[in-house]
Design a protein around this nucleic acid. Structure first.
Lengths: 320, 320
DNA sequence: ACCCCTTATAATCACATGGAATATAATCGG
DNA sequence: CCGATTATATTCCATGTGATTATAAGGGGT
């Protein structure tokens, strides 16, 4: 019965011509000192990755193996991001597929390791951090460069469309900033030739790139995919707690969410939402390390993992 | 520079041992006569699929090629669902990866074809259609069978947990029905050994299966993934219009959404939401084929595809 | 001891959202 | 001309959520 399943109808036995190499690649996230950090290896900006092998029980376990082996970082929560055929190898006789994953951990969980390197993801995407208001570079650099790009379009139709896309993505023209559009923003900058990867891939238009550290190959795009997914997911699933220590104050929890979202949250509303959803329970202890009045310590109610599959764990992200 | 990218460190050149076969598999959806239908080939319940080949420009174009070649159905909207390593081939020296896609079309777009076969997806998931109230089988069959399964757990902890998971997924114990949990429901039934695929895969517990047509291999699980994704997506992206004819009445639009969601929507609220989001515009014409007062005809405002990336196109799904 | 600064916790207001019910309009068939 | 049927418009009300203000509890300096 299984023999028909997904079989290649024209001669499947022994046919290897179309077989591909499958790479696993991970966006490993932790929040360190109020900064959202991503795990890279070596000195260059390289995400941990490795080939999917026969020995791996599953794709997920393959990701765990590679990341732990190369960085000493054990992974907790893992979720698949996206699968794509590598652009830069198209045309060759060998073909590769990359299967990307998002992983959430805490820095302290790591064993001693050599090549591990945590860096805030706002080094790669400086325009994404709006916790202290809209970064100056958005108005000073991105806006004029993107409007130039729109203006230089061939016909007026694409001029208008580029202008609108830029406005939606970056909140120009009195539009609201939407933190979930991290991927669209990066892809727009790539399309406009304003990031190093674009000029590197095509070689053609050698414009001066916009601020923001590039990564190897298409890793920055994969990272943007992970950021966008995480920013979307924290609004309806209690995944933040994967990034928290076992015990924490509500403000620490809020700062973590703010680090990921890149924007500030209204404090009373945040508390109300967390409490009324019964996401946490008091430990009974308090923490004096906060500076002012001692803060109650909380722990995550793991029971909600069963319940909230249905519920929808929303988080109130401020508008202005 | 590209040479380092995602390279297998231990000898990548010419190493083919870990190469895999990559299959593309599609969940092609259309709504026909108020029924949500999925495209299958042949007489058996088989989703269209084919191997990813060197000739394909991208994964997406590979999906288009295979579906069109095997069913004559041109695809409009396409979106990646999930990638997984086939369970049933693990252990063999050959390994396969399946990359699944969700596609939305209209039946009329098809050219004449032989093996094409549209069937309502509620044939495969009869417990998912709540448009005429909760199906009798949920209370009469699923509930007792699932509670039996929970009761037969080894320890009391898993007994409780199984019971709660069943309650959340199917809305037992005064919980609300959540149409988006289609995948969880199928996986729960699989785990409980209540669908044919479970007994087929393991051979062990030969329980009498629950109503609902099985599919080949894990195709029913892929279909459930597609249904869940679509039911979730129609709430915040205007993808319904991919399934509509160029011109339609608001009630036709509502019936389409209801078919997908498997539940009824409050009519005035639906109209209000669609109109205030400016998703559609009047054509000026009316349709008399509706029986009563002539209905205004509308067409989709394609401009919102640029705008609503940010907006969030919600749809009001009734609670009771 | 007192004041002030800081942070935590609580209570309240105002508005938008969205579910539900009701009222009115237009066509068809007897 | 009447009633059945469907479309369209209006209103009501509970809830959710953003925002503001008030109160509590600690530390540190004078």
């Amino acid at each position: 019965m299984h023999d028909h399943a997904k079989g290649n109808r024209k001669g499947r036995a022994g046919r290897k011509a179309n077989d591909v190499k499958a790479d696993l690649i991970a966006v490993v996230v932790a929040v360190i000192n109020r900064d959202p950090c991503v795990l890279t290896i070596g000195l260059e900006a390289v995400l941990p990755s490795g080939p999917f092998e026969l020995a791996h029980r599953s794709l997920q376990s393959g990701v765990r193996v590679w990341v732990e082996q190369r960085t000493g970082q054990p992974l907790g929560y893992i979720e698949q991001l996206y699968t794509f055929a590598d652009r830069d190898r198209i045309g060759a006789d060998e073909r590769a597929i990359s299967i990307s994953y998002l992983a959430l951990t805490r820095e302290e969980d790591a064993t001693s390791s050599t090549r591990r390197c945590w860096g805030t993801w706002y080094d790669y995407f400086p325009w994404e951090d709006h916790r202290s208001g809209t970064p100056a570079m958005v108005g000073d650099v991105l806006r004029p460069r993107l409007f130039d790009w729109a203006h230089n379009a061939a016909d007026s139709a694409t001029r208008l469309e580029r202008r609108r896309r830029a406005g939606v993505a970056f909140g120009f023209d009195d539009r609201a900033w939407n933190e979930e559009l991290a991927l669209q923003r990066y892809e727009l900058l790539y399309e406009a030739g304003l990031v190093e990867e674009a000029t590197r891939d095509h070689g053609s238009t050698a414009l001066v790139s916009v601020p923001g550290r590039p990564m190897i190959a298409d890793h920055r795009r994969i990272l943007a995919t992970g950021i966008a997914r995480l920013r979307s997911k924290i609004k309806y699933r209690p995944v933040v707690f994967e990034l928290m220590p076992p015990v924490f104050t509500l403000l620490q929890l809020q700062r973590t969410v703010e680090a990921l979202a890149g924007r500030l949250i209204n404090k009373p509303n945040f508390r109300r939402l967390v409490e009324q959803q019964e996401l946490v329970e008091e430990t009974g202890e308090t923490s004096v390390e906060t500076g002012g009045r001692p803060a109650k310590l909380y722990r995550f109610r793991h029971a909600v993992l069963d319940e909230s599959i249905a519920a929808g764990t929303k988080l109130p992200l401020a508008r202005g």
